[in-house]
Write a protein that binds this DNA or RNA. Structure first.
Length: 483
RNA sequence: GUCCCCAUCGUCUAGCCAGGUCCAGGACACAGCCCUUUCAAGGCUGCGACACGGGUUCAAAUCCCGUUGGGGACGCCA
């Protein structure tokens, strides 16, 4: 059996993280089974759909590393085929024309609900119209929609994640499959296209569970095989409600812009409502393909926790070679005005070293911008807290001046020597090494946080190190009011 | 309201189907310690959950029923 699954976004908005997660599960299923992963663009809502949005959705998918096997099917192109199915169903008595006035129906419904009824279904006025009436109505030019005729009985399916699920048909309305303007509705289009695309497994969000019996009934009315269905849990916001815009960022692209790596995002999404069944969490795509299975999908909703995403991103960042990080951060550095082409030219090695020094401290890509700043510009701002903590005693002026002297003497300005010389000086001055180390860090980067200060000094080079110590000495003189 | 789905640490989850090895394991977050020149990273420790009530059973987080709670769907949107 060839497994065929699909992801069917409608291009009415950005690719939502929930949608992206559905795509991830479908893709993982297909790739792990050697099946096909297909795309269908549900663009039948002409008002809200746009070609531009289709492009952005595909771009998001590509960014995540999700590829598809055949050309995407545009639902709007399939309109005649959908309507053909309606003819079949009308001919077989599974669908009928409804001449009811929609406004009248709406009013009826409102009234019924207001007077305490707990649900309202189409009363079936046109359900059993005789041929002559239909004919006359048609001749009169009355507009009509087409409804699906729900049969008696119950409809059940064995959901891949929830197991046996049963619906009593009496709870299902004779839903509309063709609007009075002659266009097919969602339920019809989905089934028609899934048949056309030979979809074997429909893996989608939980919110579609109540659509499933309707769709199964259409398959049956059409005499087609019913595919397997698997309904995955919804992604929730902190308040446990379905993730939506009021929870913050919901579109995949926003996370890309925030500096998350596609591999990390993919990994994170795969863990939302699925687990490999053991303690492994930090997983690459090829490993995920190997271990993914539908029966490990969780039943309950999953809260989107950006902190965990950030942690995962940090894991990927730490393991990513500097070259690749540089590719990712280049555009960000450019917009921040920190980029210089020499980083990929004569200062290539130096820049690699810098990035390698910073990467274990970074969680998202923009962290590199703030962390790398002091190395790339000469504008040093002395952080208030750092000043209070390490520079408030005017003695540091003397200490730094001494450090400046001994550092100027160093011939081979490497980590061992810079450390050695500093520690000897501290001993001579009878102070702890920290009393020199922290001011030195302040001199070099202006903040009390950095990689190992000797690594920093060496990376900056002797000249710049000396210059920055001098600069801080001058700054401190005026700060402490020393002449 | 009706129908459907769900229910293990604050969060993601393992365990549940094939009941004992679970006074419930891992991860994120949080707190502390170690390492250490700071911050990360790393290591260690701590905090922290089987929603409730009934069954069934020698034994239930695991099976059954109910209650409660949460969510989703109830469109001539998709």
């Amino acid at each position: 059996m060839t497994y065929r699954v699909r992801f069917a976004p409608s291009p009415t908005g950005e690719l939502h993280v929930g949608g992206a997660r559905t795509a991830v599960f479908n893709w993982l299923f297909a790739r792990s089974k050697g099946g096909k992963f297909l795309l269908r663009i549900e663009d039948t809502d002409r008002e809200r759909s746009s070609e531009a949005m289709t492009g952005r959705i595909l771009e998001g998918l590509r960014w995540l590393g999700i590829d598809w096997d055949e050309d995407p099917l545009f639902q709007s192109s399939r309109l005649p085929a959908h309507l053909e199915n309606v003819d079949k169903m009308m001919a077989s008595g599974n669908a009928y024309r409804c001449f009811c006035d929609p406004e009248k129906l709406a009013a009826e419904r409102e009234e019924a609900l207001k007077s305490g009824a707990n649900s309202w279904k189409y009363p079936g006025y046109c359900r059993d119209l005789d041929e002559n009436t239909v004919k006359t109505n048609l001749e009169k030019g009355l507009s009509f929609s087409v409804r699906f005729k729900i049969p008696e009985g119950e409809t059940s399916f064995n959901d891949l994640v929830h197991g046996e699920t049963v619906f009593d048909n009496s709870n299902i309305d004779d839903f509309i499959i063709v609007r009075s303007d002659g266009t097919p509705t969602y339920q019809l289009s989905v089934v028609s296209d899934d048949i056309e695309m030979k979809i074997t497994h429909v893996i989608r969000g939980n919110d579609h569970i109540s659509n499933t019996p309707k769709q199964i009934l259409i398959y049956k009315a059409l005499g087609k095989d019913v595919p397997e269905f698997g309904h995955i849990p919804l992604i929730l916001g902190q308040d446990k409600k379905r993730l939506s815009k009021r929870h913050g960022a919901t579109s995949l692209i926003e996370y890309k812009e925030r500096g998350y790596l596609p591999e990390a995002m993919f990994n994170f999404l795969s863990l939302l409502g699925w687990s490999p069944g053991n303690d492994r969490e930090y997983l690459r795509k090829d490993e995920l393909i190997k271990i993914f299975s539908l029966d490990k999908i969780t039943k309950s909703g999953a809260v989107f926790d950006e902190q965990k995403l950030a942690w995962l991103n940090g894991q990927f960042l730490s393991d990513l070679p500097a070259e690749e990080i540089i590719e990712e951060i280049k555009p960000r550095f450019e917009t921040a005005g920190l980029w210089d082409n020499s980083f990929q030219g004569e200062r290539k090695e130096w820049f690699y070293n810098l990035i390698n020094l910073l990467k274990t401290r970074c969680r998202i890509l923009d962290d590199f911008i703030t962390d790398a700043g002091p190395y790339l510009t000469d504008h040093i701002h002395y952080d208030d807290n750092g000043v209070k903590k390490h520079l408030k005693n005017s003695e540091v002026i003397e200490h730094l001046s001494d450090l400046l002297d001994v550092y100027s003497e160093i011939k081979d300005f490497n980590e061992a020597n810079t450390e050695d010389v500093l520690r000897k000086l501290a001993e001579k001055l009878d102070i702890s090494a920290g009393k020199l180390i922290h001011p030195l860090r302040m001199a070099l980067v202006g903040v009390p946080v950095s990689p190992g200060v000797f690594e920093v000094a060496v990376l900056m080079g002797k000249e710049k190190t000396l210059e920055r110590i001098r600069l801080l000495v001058e700054w401190l003189k005026s700060y402490h009011g020393v002449k």
